[in-house]
Design a protein around this nucleic acid. Structure first.
Lengths: 298, 298
DNA sequence: TAAAAATACTCCATAGGTATTTTAT
DNA sequence: ATAAAATACCTATGGAGTATTTTTA
């Protein structure tokens, strides 16, 4: 049995006239009669009662017609679903991100992706840099938002966001009255930072600009969450250096101050990159990647 | 697109190897490659990612595979439904019957039909003789259980049940002590019968045997329902002559007595026939007809 | 008698086969 | 070097066309 048989059957069933049906199918009447006969022989039951002068569906033919119609609808749907999936308009994507991405690039990308591809299911995982790399390789996530540098030959990456660093001070700190902070003036301060291994891409530049300003920061506390660092600063436990986008989440007891330009060159040092498997060419991943690159802020 | 393409696609999708898939399909590898290429061209999207050494489904291919598998399941089901319908194992049948059929042949037929064809939907309509004939012609019922004679060239009929007539008497009637009743002894009684036009096939034989016994019954009351006649007899309103199967529904205050053989020849006078449209050759109707004829009681 | 489906046959498009090439491991 | 898909080309099955017959309303 082939779809041809079913297409012909449907036409004869709607026309109830072999001649007209053949005409609409752009074939001659005898081959149509033959094909219907072949179909009936294969099915093992009669589809039509022919009386040389009139054609009618048998009860079995009526039942079969309903089913066949649904089959063609289902086939159309299958083609449409496949086409949409191939264009990345349908499917699933898993995105990993470091916590600090929630203050800048991530909301922008998610909003736009949802608008453009409303039928793609998005799965979000807040993960540390090292976990993201593992999950990416294992295929548990398709996209990672990580602060470089990262070296992995199986992964592709592109910088999508760069921002300056700012100093976070308790409101009552003696430097809080200034509009910009000279980095060297923080030499004697107690610092609250991330553990280096969880976010080397953010930790290392901070240490580097301090070194350039002539001191090594004294780290008194390490916190996994950026919000916790802010809390501790507000509690007068020390000061911190954070990406500028942390200012999106204002908090009582803390003020953020730009670092005086030139003092250690703190401009655009906090970098966010998008990572993906080079072997992955799935449409949804490619659509998200395209969108992320369109929204680059460097 | 033909089912061939979909069958081939399914095999390649499960084997993920053109050579092995071709082998299982009993065709050579090159034509298989060609057919899949043709399918992809028609669909407008890639089903597989081939790297000369390995074959994998694209996301679109995965989605399409799920749908195609369901299509084949639906096709199998369509064939099965058609086959069952052609055998009369599936479908619908509408049966009309006169009230008096509920005491004899109808329960037997329904029971057996339900057992044999459990998936056929049965629709029952208690209708008078004339309404059944109209509904039969209009196709609102497929089978009628009617007491003949009926003349209609578009309908076929077969006698399926014949029974004797009995006399229904109030328990305190002076003839109720006898085991059989001589019909002529009822000449002076008040009779309760059906209206003739609603059941001529039952009314006319009753009048006929009374005439043969030498009298014309005095009808004092006409009732549409047989149960109502029995009620009135029990209430001493008169006597009646009814089909023997009324005894199935025993009732206080009424006794049934056979008519003395030879006295007007009352044997097997109440006849039930099955009627159908001659133009109807639907499998369910034929199955029910077969079954009714198997259960003939003459 | 005419309309419509079925038969009988003929032809050619294309599914499928064979031989070979290409390419990635 | 080898396995596996693609390409090139050939063969033949069967789908479709034409002419004709059969049937019944």
């Amino acid at each position: 049995m082939e779809l041809r048989h079913l297409r012909y059957f449907r036409m004869v069933a709607t026309e109830l006239h072999f001649g007209r049906a053949a005409e609409k199918l752009h074939i001659a009447q005898p081959p149509l009669s033959k094909q219907i006969q072949d179909l009936e022989a294969e099915l093992g039951f009669e589809l039509f009662t022919r009386t040389k002068r009139s054609v009618a569906l048998t009860p079995a033919g009526q039942v079969f017609l309903v089913e066949v119609t649904q089959i063609f609808q289902k086939l159309d749907r299958a083609i449409d679903l496949g086409r949409k999936t191939s264009r990345g308009e349908l499917g699933k994507i898993s995105i990993g991100f470091v916590g600090s991405a929630t203050y800048n690039i991530l909301p922008v990308i998610l909003q736009q992706f949802r608008d453009r591809y409303p039928y793609v299911q998005i799965e979000l995982h807040e993960l540390t840099t090292d976990r993201q790399l593992i999950w990416l390789r294992e295929g548990r996530i398709d996209i990672g938002l990580i602060r470089p540098p990262v070296i992995d030959v199986y992964l592709g990456s592109q910088v999508i966001f760069q921002e300056s660093l700012v100093v976070a001070l308790p409101t009552n700190h003696h430097l809080a009255v200034l509009t910009t902070i000279e980095l060297s003036s923080l030499a004697a301060e107690r610092f609250i930072l991330f553990p280096r291994q969880l976010a080397p891409g953010l930790y290392d530049p901070i240490i580097a600009i301090c070194q350039a300003a002539g001191f090594s920061p004294q780290v008194v506390q390490e916190c996994i969450q950026m919000q916790t660092i802010v809390s501790l600063v507000s509690a007068n436990m020390g000061v911190s250096i954070l990406p500028a986008s942390i200012q999106e989440a204002q908090r009582q007891g803390v003020v953020y101050k730009p670092i005086r330009s030139g003092s250690g060159a703190a401009d655009k040092l906090a970098t966010m990159s998008i990572f993906w498997r080079l072997s992955d060419d799935s449409p949804t991943m490619n659509r998200l990647l395209e969108l992320a690159l369109e929204n680059r802020e460097l």
